[in-house]
Simulated scan of single mutants.
Amino acid sequence: MPIRHMIIHQIDKKPDGSPAILHLADQALPESQACETLLQDFNNSYNAKQGKGWGLFHPESGAYPLCGMLAQCLAGRQTFVDFSREATEHLCKLLEESNLTTGGHVLFAQYQQGITDYLTIAVLQQVETVSVDDQLRMISTRSLDAGTVTLAARINLSEWQSNAKSRQYISFIKGNGGKKVFGYFRDFIGCQEGIDGPGETRTLLKAFSDFIEAEEVPEESAREKTMTLVDYAAAQTKLGEPVSLDELSGLIDEDRPTAFADHVRNKDYGLSAEIPADKRTLNQFRRFTGRAEGLSISFEAHLLGSKIEFDQEGGSLTIRGLPTQLTDQLKRAAG
């Protein structure tokens, strides 16, 4: 994960209502193991966060100047250091206008992962840590807490510059620090929500269930394909990457690698080629299955409590919204 630029500024904001004090760095941090460790720890924490939003920049304006500052930097008309200083000054201004007391150390990190360039912007807090020195004495130190992140955004610079139609090149943490705090930080980034991650994930899972039913996939194979989908999507989420519909299709059916992708496109589910999977929604998508004496039951876990109710004492299931095909067969048998 080559780091192109990294710099940290500080907004010192006291809870007594006094004006914030800016401490702006004059130069970027030199390459070091400490920088790599900080960024790795941050990415691990950020990728694991549930409830992230995905979106795009508002058009540049006085209210949303960051995208213009960033464009100037990437075009070489402003240094990374000057860009980060100007951006932090704007962040501090919004902080004061919002009457918030949350300052911190503002991290700017431009780095490459694979062939993709990213910019991470985050407000980190310091925490007290205890360690042991060479004489085995306990010492107390302060360190940046990259594992507890509430204000952060990551911009896919490559996609922003190459795909003008994209609506998901920015990801950001939603609401963990309170609506007001989250709002001021999102205004600072100048981001508008463009993709509904949970909604897209639910649509993907619905398309998958329809595909399994349409293809009349046997129970054991359906279970394997479900685990393939969930494992792949979870792995992509852990990496901070979207789910590729074509790649997923190839994993679901190696013999017919385009079958699922063709099903999604032909049925017009409205899904993008890349989907920002929502971890919480994925965790709800598990199948309960069972077979005994000519009876075979299989359903997704997220239906339990909505369309399917389980009576534990009576050992029975109540199913609402039966498939039309099954209903028609039952009506014919009853008649």
Score class of each variant (00 low, 15 high):
residue 2 P to Q: 10
residue 3 I to P: 08
residue 5 H to P: 09
residue 6 M to F: 02
residue 8 I to Y: 01
residue 9 H to V: 09
residue 12 D to H: 12
residue 13 K to S: 15
residue 23 H to T: 13
residue 25 A to S: 14
residue 30 P to L: 15
residue 34 A to C: 15
residue 35 C to T: 14
residue 39 L to V: 08
residue 43 N to V: 03
residue 44 N to Y: 12
residue 46 Y to C: 01
residue 52 K to H: 06
residue 54 W to Q: 10
residue 54 W to F: 04
residue 56 L to D: 03
residue 57 F to S: 00
residue 63 A to T: 08
residue 65 P to F: 01
residue 65 P to R: 02
residue 69 M to T: 04
residue 69 M to I: 09
residue 70 L to H: 02
residue 74 L to W: 02
residue 76 G to V: 01
residue 77 R to M: 09
residue 78 Q to I: 05
residue 79 T to Q: 08
residue 81 V to Y: 01
residue 86 E to C: 12
residue 88 T to S: 01
residue 88 T to H: 00
residue 89 E to F: 10
residue 91 L to Y: 04
residue 91 L to K: 06
residue 92 C to T: 05
residue 94 L to H: 06
residue 98 S to C: 11
residue 98 S to N: 06
residue 101 T to Y: 03
residue 105 H to N: 14
residue 106 V to R: 03
residue 110 Q to E: 15
residue 113 Q to Y: 07
residue 113 Q to C: 06
residue 115 I to H: 06
residue 116 T to W: 04
residue 119 L to F: 00
residue 123 V to E: 01
residue 130 V to K: 09
residue 130 V to C: 13
residue 133 D to H: 03
residue 134 D to Y: 07
residue 139 I to E: 15
residue 143 S to N: 03
residue 145 D to P: 04
residue 146 A to F: 09
residue 147 G to D: 04
residue 147 G to Q: 03
residue 148 T to Y: 10
residue 159 E to Q: 14
residue 163 N to A: 15
residue 163 N to Q: 09
residue 164 A to S: 13
residue 164 A to D: 14
residue 172 F to N: 04
residue 174 K to V: 10
residue 175 G to K: 11
residue 176 N to S: 13
residue 181 V to N: 04
residue 184 Y to H: 11
residue 184 Y to C: 15
residue 186 R to E: 08
residue 188 F to K: 05
residue 192 Q to P: 07
residue 193 E to F: 07
residue 194 G to Q: 14
residue 199 G to P: 09
residue 203 T to I: 11
residue 206 K to H: 08
residue 208 F to K: 06
residue 208 F to A: 05
residue 211 F to D: 00
residue 213 E to I: 07
residue 227 M to S: 14
residue 229 L to Q: 05
residue 230 V to F: 15
residue 230 V to E: 01
residue 230 V to C: 13
residue 233 A to N: 05
residue 235 A to P: 00
residue 237 T to P: 09
residue 238 K to V: 10
residue 238 K to F: 02
residue 241 E to Q: 10
residue 241 E to G: 05
residue 245 L to P: 01
residue 245 L to K: 07
residue 247 E to F: 15
residue 248 L to Y: 00
residue 249 S to W: 01
residue 251 L to M: 12
residue 251 L to C: 06
residue 255 D to P: 03
residue 256 R to H: 14
residue 258 T to A: 14
residue 259 A to C: 13
residue 260 F to D: 03
residue 261 A to L: 11
residue 262 D to T: 10
residue 265 R to P: 12
residue 265 R to D: 10
residue 266 N to M: 07
residue 269 Y to V: 04
residue 270 G to K: 04
residue 273 A to T: 12
residue 273 A to E: 13
residue 275 I to W: 00
residue 275 I to P: 08
residue 278 D to S: 08
residue 278 D to E: 07
residue 279 K to H: 11
residue 280 R to G: 00
residue 281 T to F: 10
residue 285 F to Q: 02
residue 285 F to T: 00
residue 290 G to H: 01
residue 292 A to R: 06
residue 294 G to K: 10
residue 294 G to H: 03
residue 298 S to F: 01
residue 300 E to Q: 05
residue 302 H to V: 13
residue 304 L to E: 09
residue 307 K to D: 11
residue 307 K to T: 11
residue 312 Q to D: 10
residue 313 E to F: 09
residue 313 E to R: 13
residue 314 G to H: 03
residue 315 G to M: 09
residue 316 S to D: 12
residue 317 L to Y: 00
residue 320 R to M: 06
residue 320 R to P: 01
residue 326 L to N: 12
residue 327 T to P: 03
